[in-house]
Design a protein around this nucleic acid. Structure first.
Lengths: 181, 181
DNA sequence: CCGTCTTGTGGTTATCCACTCACCAGTCTC
DNA sequence: GAGACTGGTGAGTGGATAACCACAAGACGG
C-alpha cells in the first residue's frame, strides 16, 4: 500500500529526533509528570522502541538535559558574538543583555528548571552538574571575566529564568516590577 | 484496648500537622513525583481523610507552598534582626550573609524549587506568585532598599538555592568554586 | 442518654505507568 | 536468495495512583 513507503532512519537519527521532541514533552510537566508514552507519541514512535533507544526513563531525561545543555551553549555563543569588544566587561554585558532572547526558548528553560528539581535522581543530577560545568567554563573562556563577575551573571540569569517560569511578565504589581527592573 | 485512647484533633489542627509533614514528603520528589498516599502516611492519617481536608492534590500542594512562604518569611525576619543598623545597605547585607542558614532548611528550599517547576498548574502558580510577592514586599519593608538592591538580593538567593539543590557544595571543581565564591 | 456532628477509616474503582517481549519487515552480505 | 542484522510495533504485566464513598466511633448539646 501507499504507506509502504515508510520512512526508516538509523537508530542514531531516531535518537536525535526523540531528544528534540522530548524537550517539548518534558517541558510542560517535568520528569515525574510526563509519561514515556507521551514522549514516544511526540516522537512518532512506539513506546516499545523508545525503550530500545534509551535504557530507562532516567537515562532518557538525562540525555534530554545534555541536549539542552548543547542548545543553551549555542544560544549563549550567539549572544557573545554581539559584544562590542572582547573585553570581559563588554562580553558579559552582551550576554546579560541578550539573555532574554536566550530564554525566549521556553522549552529549554523549563527543562533546565525541572532538571534542578529532580537532581536527586543520580543520573539526572550528574547531567545537571555537567550542564552547569560546561556553561560556567564556556562563559569564563569567552569572556575571560573574574569569578565575581561570572557569578553575578549566573545569578541574574537564574532570576530571569524564574521570572519566566512563573509568568511574572504578565503580572502588573510592585514586586514583579522590582524583580524585572 | 490501649489504643482506645486515640488522639483526636480538630480539623484545623490536623490540617496544620498535615501541612508540616507534607513539606518533607513533597520535598524529595516534588508535586508529580509524590503520591497522596505518601503524604497521608507521613501525616499519620488515611488517604481518604486527606481528601476531606483538602479538595484535591493541587490544592494541597498550593497550601504547602503557602505554608513554606510563612516559614521563609519567619526565617528571613530572624536574619534581618542580625543587621548592624537599619540602613538599607546593612540590612540587605545581613540578609544575604545569613541566607545560607535560611536555606539550611533543605525541605523548604526544595518545595520552593519544585513549586517553580509546576507553576503551570493554575492553583499552584498563584501560590508561587503570592509567595514571591510577600517575600519581595517584606524585604522592601524591612530594608527600605532600592529596587536594584532588592533585585540583586533575590538573584543571589536564587543562585544559592540552585547550588544547594544540585549539591554543588560537594563538588570540587572550578565551576563550582566560581559559583560559590 | 439520645440524636447529631465531626473526626477518621478501610475498601474500591478506573486509570495510568514503567518496562518487557515476542514478533514483523526492510535491507545488506555472501 | 538464504541468513543475519536492524528498525520498528503492539500487546501485555504488575504495580501504583487520584479520587470517591459508605460507614465506624468519639465528642457534645439538650
Amino acid at each position: 500500500m501507499a504507506t509502504g513507503v515508510r520512512q526508516r532512519s538509523t537508530a542514531a537519527q531516531r535518537r536525535d529526533t526523540v531528544l528534540r521532541t522530548a524537550v517539548a514533552a518534558f517541558a510542560a510537566r517535568g520528569y515525574y509528570g510526563t509519561s514515556t508514552m507521551e514522549v514516544a507519541a511526540a516522537a512518532g514512535i512506539s513506546q516499545g522502541y523508545l525503550y530500545r533507544l534509551f535504557k530507562d526513563k532516567q537515562t532518557l531525561f538525562a540525555a534530554v538535559v545534555d541536549h539542552c545543555s548543547d542548545r543553551l551553549r549555542e544560544s549563549v555563543a550567539a549572544a557573545a558574538a554581539t559584544a562590542r569588544s572582547t573585553e570581559p566587561q563588554d562580553v558579559l554585558e552582551a550576554l546579560t543583555a541578550s539573555y532574554d532572547e536566550v530564554i525566549a526558548d521556553r522549552e529549554l528553560l523549563m527543562i533546565l528548571l525541572h532538571a534542578q528539581g529532580c537532581a536527586g535522581e543520580p543520573v539526572i543530577g550528574e547531567a545537571v552538574r555537567r550542564c552547569y560545568a560546561r556553561q560556567v567554563e564556556y562563559v569564563r573562556a569567552v569572556s575571560g571575566a573574574a569569578e565575581q563577575q561570572i557569578r553575578r551573571y549566573f545569578a541574574d540569569a537564574l532570576l530571569s529564568n524564574v521570572m519566566v517560569a512563573i509568568d511574572a511578565a504578565a503580572v502588573d504589581a510592585p514586586w514583579a516590577r522590582t524583580l524585572r527592573a
